[in-house]
Design a protein around this nucleic acid. Structure first.
Length: 531
DNA sequence: TTAGGGTTAG
């Protein structure tokens, strides 16, 4: 009976029945009953109830039951207690493939990707053969770690005869694309006998995230052309299309995509509305963002965060701060990302005092404990304001447990970048040594260090940085700007004088540079007068 | 067990 309720997703009623049965009537639950009630706890994400059921399981001596054990793993995982899930798994006297898959899924769900990978290797050692659930989970882990296990998973897929498993193929396409091999993803996509809406959406997102928006949009057009074959886009497809429009930074295109969302009736979704806010802001159209924000009927924390981030990205720090106060008036609680967006807005808008004060009060006023990202953002803020020594001292104040995270190099990176702007070689070289140690595979550290040496006239050191970069085989990815003229997008890289660009464009750029320099001089003169 | 909305320096 309880099982029936769980199946109907009326887990709450199932739970009440269970409590009545056990505590009022004194009926002893069997293994099957435990499995059902654990499913209810999983569904409701009720860790307290789940833990008490676990106690009952032990009391009734059912902890050796394979099915009960698997359900316990699942319950703990979904309640975000991966450690307890693993303890159950570890203590199981007998395990089947479902047990292994459950703990693997649990690790992936809780973003414990390294643990997931270790577990997958143990599975191989124990002679447990991977099935499609195993493979999809390993792919998720590869995607998050940006590690290229795709090809070996692909081989297993072929070997084990899963080549027409759509779900697994979709996962493979996604992981190939997110690990920067979108061409292989495209090949796989084209070879699929049957493609569903997930395949299409994944392919659009794949091209967009690899910085190839034109191809993403072509895939979308092809999907629309095949609509007759039941290939209707859903809200995720549209959101992925927006991602492509943001990558091309073209307002006209974004408006076109917005129109499609309206015509397909998908624009009423909160997630779609929020993505529209984000898309317009990335095209620099902050007015359109605000309008789209106003049109979201039921705004949630993510929507507010997106609008705050939009203001921040466009240099409107005061507006971002005002929106944080406003969202609280509507009874919405900011989360870690919201606060990070406000801090970033302060950083880009030069509002150092406001930013630091927000950082100091975030735990007390907003109930958000500072994470490494928040610390990094403050370092960036101080660095941009030229307070380099303060920024360095701030890094040293980052709690040790936060510093242990994989992205601890970001704070030094932010400081290094500020030192380069302010030509401070003393602080800069200390920052550089940390960045090179923590992130030896990234070109930015070497280039910035080289630039700092060069600015101090230390040409030999500058050159040695560049040769170290080559020696270690680090790939340099240059940043670029896009300028749209008519229907054509022109891509500009620093120091690029390629003949692909019209000579007129370069002379116009030089003219603009001269104007900006003159303007800067005027501003500096004005400031001097004020002093 | 597959795609998806907000964040961080280059």
């Amino acid at each position: 009976m309880i099982g029936g309720f769980v199946h109907c997703k009326e887990a709450q009623i199932g739970m009440l029945m269970f409590q009545k049965m056990v505590y009022e009537r004194g009926i002893e639950p069997d293994g099957l009953c435990m499995v059902s009630i654990l499913k209810a706890c999983t569904h409701l994400k009720d860790l307290t109830m789940g833990t008490s059921v676990h106690g009952l399981v032990i009391y009734r001596g059912l902890d050796c039951d394979l099915f009960v054990g698997n359900s316990l793993i699942d319950m703990y995982s979904k309640c975000q207690d991966a450690d307890s899930a693993f303890k159950v798994f570890d203590a199981m006297p007998r395990r089947n493939r479902v047990s292994w898959n459950s703990i693997l899924t649990g690790f992936v769900f809780n973003e414990r990707h390294l643990d997931a990978l270790t577990l997958f290797y143990s599975m191989g050692k124990e002679g447990i053969e991977a099935d499609e659930v195993t493979l999809v989970n390993v792919l998720q882990t590869s995607k998050h770690l940006r590690m290229f296990h795709c090809k070996s998973v692909h081989c297993v897929t072929i070997r084990r005869g899963y080549v027409s498993n759509e779900l697994l193929l979709n996962s493979l396409i996604d992981t190939y694309a997110k690990c920067n091999d979108v061409d292989l993803a495209w090949k796989l996509f084209n070879g699929m006998k049957k493609r569903d809406v997930v395949s299409w959406s994944t392919m659009i997102s794949g091209f967009a995230s690899c910085g190839r928006p034109e191809e993403a949009i072509t895939v979308f057009h092809e999907m629309m052309r095949l609509q007759a074959q039941d290939q209707k886009p859903n809200e995720i497809t549209i959101i992925n299309l927006f991602e492509a429009c943001s990558a091309s930074a073209e307002l006209k295109r974004s408006k076109w995509a917005h129109g499609i969302a309206i015509r397909t009736g998908l624009s009423a979704e909160v997630a779609v509305g929020t993505a529209i806010v984000d898309m317009y802001s990335k095209c620099g159209a902050i007015g359109e963002s605000r309008k789209a924000f106003g049109q979201i009927l039921e705004k949630n924390t993510v929507s507010w965060s997106a609008m705050i981030a939009a203001y921040g990205m466009n240099g409107l720090g005061h507006e971002a701060l005002a929106l944080l106060a406003e969202m609280k008036l509507y009874g919405l609680k900011p989360n870690a990302v919201t606060i990070l967006s406000v801090l970033s807005a302060c950083s880009h808008g030069g509002l150092v005092e406001e930013g630091v004060s927000l950082f100091n009060s975030m735990a007390q006023d907003h109930g958000v404990e500072p994470r490494l990202e928040h610390y990094t953002c403050v370092v960036d803020m101080l660095g941009r304001a030229g307070k380099l020594v303060m920024a360095m001292e701030f890094i040293k104040k980052i709690p040790q447990d936060l510093k242990a995270a994989a992205r601890a190099s970001n704070a030094w990176g932010a400081l290094l970048s500020a030192c380069r702007s302010y030509r401070n070689s003393e602080v800069g070289l200390e920052a550089a040594s940390h960045v090179l140690e923590l992130e030896p595979g990234n070109s930015a550290g070497y280039l910035q260090a080289s630039s700092i040496y060069a600015a101090s006239g230390l040409w030999v050191d500058a050159a040695s940085m560049r040769s170290l970069l080559k020696e270690r085989g680090v790939r340099v990815v240059a940043g670029y700007s896009l300028v749209h003229v008519g229907h054509k997008a022109y891509r500009f890289v620093a120091g690029d004088h390629s003949p692909a660009h019209d000579g007129n464009i370069h002379s116009m750029l030089q003219l603009l540079h001269a104007c900006m320099k003159a303007e800067k001089r005027n501003i500096v003169d004005d400031l001097d007068l004020i002093d």
